[in-house]
Design a protein around this nucleic acid. Structure first.
Lengths: 190, 190, 190, 190
DNA sequence: ATTTAACCGAGACGGTACGTCCCGTCTTTAC
DNA sequence: GTAAAGACGGGACGTACCGTCTCGGTTAAAT
């Protein structure tokens, strides 16, 4: 990323901005429409007109494409209000929206599928899931909960959502998640 | 297509018993070692010596192999004692063991991976997950819990285990699951 | 060629007769029209409609194609009359015809070109040139000439023809070759 | 294209002397080691560190590289003594040496290989062979031989050497060539 | 014992995708 | 204007599977 020692001569390395946007846009479309298996150099070439060579040059593996996609599509963070209950409910809504509106669910499925054969993707997947859980954990930590209890609560709230999206392929159970938030808060209050 | 009148002569259809066991055994090994992508006719041929033609004849797709595998490896059902708490803890232990000892986690990952491209596998996957949840649901239903509440409790207990096995690739959090059982029972008791 | 130990089971190996004739016919055409560089799996596929895979299966390298071509296009041997002079002149005419009518000159050029990068072709080339010279050598040997003298004579007669065909790309100097035969016979007579 | 009026300012056109020598030296090495197919811009770049662009600028085709090589490696001409026999023997020795020490044989093979696909190379090849034969022809012409007879003699002497080097890939038959010289002189004397 | 249908192995064949390599052109940057 | 570095499109290469098929030979039940 950071080039401390610029070679100073020759054309700058890396794909043209054009190429980058065209390819990644098509990649996202393909991912949503057909899943991770479609993130092939071949398919990207067919979809974009960008030559196969060029794609291999800059994104040698489907995992690399996934990585680039995740990098350019970050989650807008929510601002905490300090009220634990309200914050958690807000986070649940945000996550449900992201899972419903596709990219996140698609990323998860893709990462799971690719991880079966590519260790790099395994790593990427764990980091991605971690990033999804982080805001929840932060809210509970800020509320003074000890680490283990916070993790338990996060798991109870978020896991069912992920399982719905990933394993059962059905819309996430938003209302159940909200109930679960209340339960966890009641637990903690005691 | 429809054989109303079975011609009684000739050799009975279907693979030799030998062939079946040899192929499915190798298939399980391959699945555990390399994931669903290895359940190819090609790979099974290489692993077993059984000819590629034969494999295509009896298991035309990887999903068919997966289905056959799941069929021959059923879960031994636990006998309920009537004590809800004890039964739930027992089920948690049983599920954790099955997830730890591999086949189940591998099946889940395989089904998720294959489901990306094969609708048949999608169906198979949902049924498989349903079968995993069923015993829990049964215990809580038998205890007189209403349907929605039972589903919530099952989700809270089981989902984190599945997420651990599937998405985070780490050993399942057995003790947390047991804590969660106690929490859910306490909730219900109120 | 000769299968003493037939595997007795499974489909017989080797390309279908159809495939063989279609491919080799096209190969000869390509060779004459564009030289050895055209004996690619790719080109043969384009020219015949036979799939690239099939061609690679049976003739993995251009050298293999050349070898097959040479095998199916043998030189009809001349019958010796016993008169050395007449026989040599006849052989010169035969060779000139074969060089003029293409295949042989094309084979030589092809073998030379391919030999630059494929040792197998080197071997094939030497054998092929040897076969071209053999009849001349045979005539002179039968006439009782010692080996070295025969080789000298053959070289003097044939080499200029080969050089014309190969290096100068011009019609072979048939009349000079006949003069050379007379000269060599005169030499020997002395 | 046509510069009637040379603009006297700016850097003089053409490659740096450094570049030229570095590239052509490497080209010769590559030619001797791997044949004409290695005279690629790519390979020359790898071998020299000179950038691919630069090489394309000055030697757009492999044939151009070959041409430049031939230009810078001229044959040191022998001085005629006037004695036909001695001069011919000297020329035979000189040619055999050049064929043995590689460059010339390599040039011939390279030119033959390239000529298959590049007409320019064909021309170059014929000129090159002509230059190889010229000294012999000169000696015999100076001795008063008519054109046709001289050509016959040259062919008889030189062709076997070329065939050895090119087609049979074996050391040239130097002693036979000397014998052939004597024979030709004897012939002429009669 | 014969039928007879199905088994099984070996492999040809067309087809698609893969990942790599090279080619020739070009653009950007520095000297 | 030389030179370097590299993007880019294009094409071929050789490999690997895939799914279908066509041969052969074998096996096991029912007649």
């Amino acid at each position: 990323m950071y080039c401390y020692l610029m070679t100073t001569t020759g054309r700058p390395a890396g794909p043209t901005e054009d190429t980058t946007t065209v390819v990644l846009t098509a990649a996202l479309d393909l991912l949503l429409a057909e899943g991770a298996a479609a993130l092939t150099a071949q398919r990207l070439h067919q979809a974009t007109g960008v030559s196969r060579s060029t794609i291999y040059r800059h994104w040698p593996t489907p995992t690399a494409v996934l990585g680039a996609l995740i990098e350019v599509a970050p989650s807008p963070p929510l601002e905490p209000t300090g009220d634990v209950s309200r914050d958690l409910h807000a986070e649940v809504d945000a996550l449900c929206n992201r899972l419903r509106d596709k990219p996140v669910a698609a990323f998860l499925q893709a990462l799971t599928a690719v991880a079966a054969s590519d260790p790099d993707a395994r790593e990427l997947r764990e980091q991605y899931v971690g990033d999804l859980l982080a805001p929840f954990r932060a809210v509970l930590r800020d509320a003074g909960l000890p680490s283990v209890a916070a993790d338990d609560a996060v798991a109870a709230i978020v896991s069912p959502l992920l399982v719905d999206a990933l394993l059962l392929g059905r819309p996430t159970a938003r209302t159940r998640a909200h109930r679960m938030v209340d339960v966890q808060i009641a637990m903690v209050a005691r």
